[in-house]
Amino acid sequence: MAAAPETYRVFAIKYAHHERRSGVNFIGGDSHDVPMPMDFFVWAVVGESRSFVVDTGFDQAMAARRGRSIIRPIEEGLRAVGIDTSTVEDVILTHMHYDHAGNRDLFPRARYHLQDREMAYCTGRCMCHSPIARHFEADDVAGMVHRVFEGRVQFHDGDSQIAPGLSVHRVGGHTEGMQVVRVHTQQGWLVLASDASHFYANMEQRRPFPAVHNVGDMLEAYTRLYSLADAPHLVIPGHDPDVLRRFAAPSREHEGWIARLDASAR
């Protein structure tokens, strides 16, 4: 008999910010052309018996190269929710873009969970095309290759349960191996969409984000996200500052940079 799902606490941790306008956040632009900034998050999934980090962000050097602003290093945010990066045993990478797969040395003990197709994608012929490759960092990809040879990567092919109450699901679209994370919480099944939908508006209005491998798959992914969650508000986009307004901080000192996603929405 299958084990009963564990119930997890889930935190969105903002580590960086980028000012931009709405026109660059939708294929075809946006007629309103209003400010629509992007926040950068990692996520912590905290259980009684086991915890997981979802994505690993980037560091100050990469922020300077890419014109982004670090708000707080991710190790500070993880420490605030009780996670020591030196002891983390499982990291789930939704995909291998620079803002989700950096900080290569922060998790020395971790096993990394990645889709087969994502590894093939970021080491294959698509990286010969600069409009695609520019979203990746060669050092991050090479670091993952080294982990493969060290026995520290667990590959997944499509949908896969990692632990009772936690699973990954390949949806594609943004990248070939884009995966989302489904988590059992006290509010029901929650989905960390990551870049399957950068903003609420992308999935709610069916207006895809311009950084895309396959537009059709991205549109289909929006439907899949909602089917995996128990309620629409439990689908969490990857870069929307509104996440920090829709969900409360765990305490007053965390206001504006950490949200508890498994608690009731505001």
Rank of each mutant, 00 (worst) to 15 (best):
M1W: 11
M1S: 14
A2I: 01
E6L: 03
F11N: 00
A12P: 10
I13Y: 04
K14G: 02
Y15V: 00
H18W: 09
H18D: 09
E19W: 08
R20H: 05
N25Q: 14
G28N: 09
D33G: 04
V34A: 14
P37L: 06
F40A: 06
F41G: 02
V45W: 13
V46R: 06
G47S: 00
E48K: 07
S49V: 02
R50S: 06
S51N: 08
V53T: 05
V54C: 03
M62H: 10
R65Y: 13
R65G: 10
R68G: 15
R68C: 15
S69I: 14
I70D: 08
I71K: 15
I71A: 15
R72F: 08
R72W: 07
L78Q: 13
D84V: 04
S86L: 15
L93G: 02
Y98I: 13
H100Y: 10
H100S: 09
G102T: 08
D105N: 10
P108Y: 05
R109V: 04
L114G: 04
Q115Y: 12
Q115C: 14
Q115F: 08
M119Q: 10
M119P: 10
Y121H: 11
T123R: 09
R125M: 13
M127Y: 01
I132V: 14
R134H: 13
H135W: 13
F136K: 02
M144P: 09
V145H: 08
H146P: 00
F149A: 12
E150D: 11
V153A: 03
Q154S: 09
Q154V: 08
D159Q: 13
S160G: 12
Q161D: 11
Q161V: 12
A163P: 03
P164H: 07
R170P: 09
G172L: 02
T175I: 01
M178E: 15
M178W: 06
V180A: 04
R182Y: 02
V183L: 00
A193W: 03
S194G: 12
S194K: 14
S194H: 14
D195F: 07
A196P: 10
F199H: 10
R206D: 12
F209I: 00
A211E: 14
V212Y: 04
V215N: 05
M218P: 03
A221Q: 01
A229K: 01
L234V: 00
L234Y: 00
H239R: 15
H239N: 15
R245I: 12
A249G: 00
S251I: 01
E255L: 12
W257I: 02
A259P: 02
A263L: 12
A265Y: 01
